[in-house]
Design a protein around this nucleic acid. Sequence first.
DNA 1: TCTTTATGGTGAG
DNA 2: TCACCCTAAAGAT
Length: 259
Amino acid sequence: MADSLASEIYFQFDHLKRFQTKLSHRRITLVEARGKAILTHFDCGLAIYSHNQLYGSWTICRSHETPQSKRQLRLAIRTDLKSALLYSATDIEVLTPKQITAHRYLSALGPDVLSEGIERIRAQLQSSGYRRRRFGSLFLDQHFIAGIGNYLRSEILFVAGLHPQMRPLDCSTSMLDRLADAIVAVSWQSYRHGGVTNDLDDAAALKAQGKTRNQYRHWVFARGNEPCRRCDTRIVEDTAASRRIFFCPVCQPLLTEAF
DNA sequence: TCTTTATGGTGAG
DNA sequence: TCACCCTAAAGAT
């Protein structure tokens, strides 16, 4: 939608209604992801901030079409060709450039997992401030790397072959490089393939066999007590940073010797 | 129809 | 680390 003219902007929340006329007929200059938030910038300098949390969802449809849905329509951005509809989300704001800079969530974000290069991710893994933090907790911390969520955490650690209780301190440089590769590769694959982090051929084969989305999507996430796709060992479910985490105890051995 | 859970985040202690 | 907030789908009754 970037570089197109907004023909109509709709906000469900009363406190945002005053921006409907301000933003309508303005040009959308940029739509960017910052971690898990989306910023939609307009040529007047204002930007719509939105965060889906666990339940928000965007739908792109033809302009002036509104699909039947029981969900709450919170925001509609319409152009001549397409409409972007945001359902259910509650975390929506309109911000000036100054407010973006000072924003509580945005200003505290670490490097974005999809926009930053691998060198920046490697640097984060080697930065002294994070060396003693366990991967399980580190990967949910958006100050560390922005955009990794609960299922990517389990999937990345599986692909890198690292136990959730390990820390950067416990890893050699080559292990950290392997982890940086996994962070970028798994995140991009998930972005491009609708959240499928499993091997794509394997996922396609399982899908063809009639398996459900939940049965073919992931290596380990939400597969507690099921066989590891690589070694057949039962996947372990645990808790880290108050959220559930999954790993294979054989493919992801706990190594605590310092390098 | 009620309860639980979730790919998230905040703030108190 | 935990309770809490938010919404909707899934699971339990």
